[in-house]
Simulated assay, not measured.
Amino acid sequence: MKKKILVTGGAGFVGSHLCERLSQNSNYEVYSLDNYFTGSKDNHVPNVTYIKGNTSDISELIIFNPDMVYHLGEYSRVEQSFDDIEKVWEYNKNGIFAVLEFVRKSGCKILYAGSSTKFGDGGLGRSASPYAWTKASNTELVENYGAWFNIPYAITYFYNVYGSREIQTGKYATLIALFKEKMKNDETLTIVSPGTQKRNFTHIDDIIDGLVLVGENGYGDEFGIGSEEAFSILEVAQMYDGKIEMLPERRGNRMTAEVISDKTKALGWEPKRKLADYIEEGRKNDWKE
């Protein structure tokens, strides 16, 4: 019998890559649940069953008992979360309760994708934005469900993921994709002040390596998946060698975050890709994927 694997957010940036990797395992049947808020049908990959809907409705939409749930399908932007607080609550708070109840009744393991904002600025980052607080408090709820109902769980933390299928334009664009798109169009690179805020940019392939490894072998909290190389936003812009414009400071913009990856490395994970190489490859290909 094949194992049934459910990925929430499976049509999104990270989720689609995870679905793609899992679908290559002949022992798995892979399913995606996504509301397509930031996900896209363009991210669909072969051998995955796609189901449209919110995670808050998971018990009505998923009519089978999976062997494993990768819960990636939550709202995931910091600065925008102040304006989107109703969506943040619906997708992150209503969603996590519904997913945990579904997992409890199904009797399967859950891997929860937490947020490294929880560790930002010495721990102060956990309450710096609606997004950060919901994600941090959700990790506590996952832990509590594990203790209350004996649910097997693992909690991972991503650090500034970049790579193919990033959102390149609009309100929800991510930094590396945005810079690449601006360079392609010969536009100025905009940086939120002060520009010295540091990030641990981690390639999508390294993230997926870690996710699959932790999903199969990890239990408990603090499975960080992040490159130890840290760059300020200004340093990243200078790697692109483009014109730079500074923007005013914004709420929720943490300065640093500690990479906590010892438990992930103990399973055999190591980051293999470097941001500088990715930018150089993009330059050679005229900023195309």
Results as ranks from 00 to 15, higher is better:
3 K>N: 06
4 K>S: 09
5 I>N: 01
7 V>L: 11
10 G>F: 09
12 G>V: 13
22 L>G: 02
23 S>Y: 04
24 Q>L: 11
26 S>H: 13
27 N>R: 14
30 V>Y: 06
30 V>I: 13
30 V>M: 03
32 S>E: 04
33 L>I: 06
34 D>Q: 05
37 F>Q: 13
38 T>M: 14
40 S>F: 03
40 S>V: 09
42 D>K: 11
44 H>S: 08
44 H>W: 08
46 P>D: 07
47 N>V: 12
48 V>G: 01
54 N>I: 08
55 T>C: 15
63 I>L: 14
65 N>C: 08
67 D>A: 09
73 G>S: 09
74 E>Y: 07
80 Q>H: 04
83 D>L: 14
84 D>E: 10
86 E>F: 14
86 E>I: 13
88 V>W: 03
89 W>L: 15
94 N>Y: 01
99 V>M: 06
99 V>Q: 01
100 L>E: 00
102 F>D: 00
103 V>R: 03
104 R>K: 15
106 S>D: 02
107 G>E: 02
108 C>W: 06
110 I>C: 00
111 L>D: 01
113 A>P: 05
113 A>D: 06
116 S>F: 08
121 D>N: 11
123 G>P: 00
127 S>L: 12
128 A>C: 11
133 W>L: 15
134 T>Q: 11
136 A>R: 03
138 N>E: 02
140 E>W: 11
143 E>F: 02
143 E>T: 04
144 N>A: 12
147 A>R: 13
153 Y>A: 01
155 I>Q: 00
159 Y>V: 07
160 N>D: 07
160 N>H: 14
161 V>R: 07
162 Y>I: 09
166 E>G: 14
167 I>G: 02
170 G>E: 09
170 G>I: 12
170 G>P: 12
170 G>F: 13
171 K>G: 05
172 Y>R: 12
174 T>G: 08
175 L>Y: 11
177 A>K: 12
178 L>Q: 04
181 E>N: 10
184 K>W: 10
184 K>V: 03
185 N>T: 10
185 N>D: 05
189 L>D: 00
191 I>Y: 06
193 S>Q: 15
195 G>K: 15
195 G>L: 15
196 T>E: 15
202 T>F: 14
203 H>Y: 11
204 I>G: 03
212 V>P: 02
214 V>I: 09
214 V>Y: 00
217 N>D: 05
218 G>Y: 00
219 Y>P: 05
220 G>V: 09
221 D>V: 10
221 D>Y: 07
226 G>N: 06
227 S>L: 10
228 E>P: 01
228 E>A: 08
229 E>Y: 10
234 L>Y: 09
234 L>W: 07
246 M>G: 01
252 G>I: 06
252 G>N: 07
256 T>A: 05
257 A>P: 00
257 A>T: 10
259 V>I: 11
260 I>P: 01
261 S>P: 01
263 K>R: 12
269 W>L: 02
270 E>D: 03
273 R>N: 06
276 A>C: 08
277 D>R: 05
282 G>P: 13
283 R>V: 09
284 K>L: 14
285 N>K: 14
287 W>Q: 02
